[in-house]
Amino acid sequence: MEKSPTPRRLRDLPGIAELERKALMKPRYADVDAAYEFPEINEASRAIFGLTAEEADDVVRPDGWDHIDRKPERDQVMAFEAEGWDVTGENRRPLRMLGHFSQQLWLALRGVAGELPFVPEDDEPDPMKSSLAKEAAAFRRDRR
Rank of each mutant, 00 (worst) to 15 (best):
F38D: 03
E40M: 03
L116T: 10
V119R: 11
A17S: 15
M128E: 08
M25E: 13
W65A: 02
E135A: 14
M25F: 10
A133F: 08
S4M: 10
L51K: 01
E115F: 09
P14G: 01
E121L: 13
R61F: 08
R96Q: 11
E124N: 14
L109Y: 00
R74V: 15
G114T: 05
R11A: 07
M1K: 07
E20L: 05
P127D: 06
M78A: 13
V32P: 05
S45D: 01
H67Q: 15
G84H: 06
W106V: 02
S45R: 02
T52H: 03
G89Y: 06
F38T: 02
A30K: 15
F101I: 10
E37M: 06
R8A: 07
S102L: 15
A56I: 10
P62H: 06
S131V: 07
S4N: 14
V87W: 04
K22T: 00
R8I: 04
D75P: 00
E55L: 11
P27F: 01
S45G: 15
R8F: 08
L109G: 01
D12N: 11
G89V: 05
D58R: 13
G64W: 01
D12Y: 07
A113G: 04
P39F: 05
P5E: 11
A136L: 09
V60N: 01
E73M: 13
D58K: 11
R11K: 15
H100C: 03
A34T: 05
A47V: 02
G111R: 09
V87G: 05
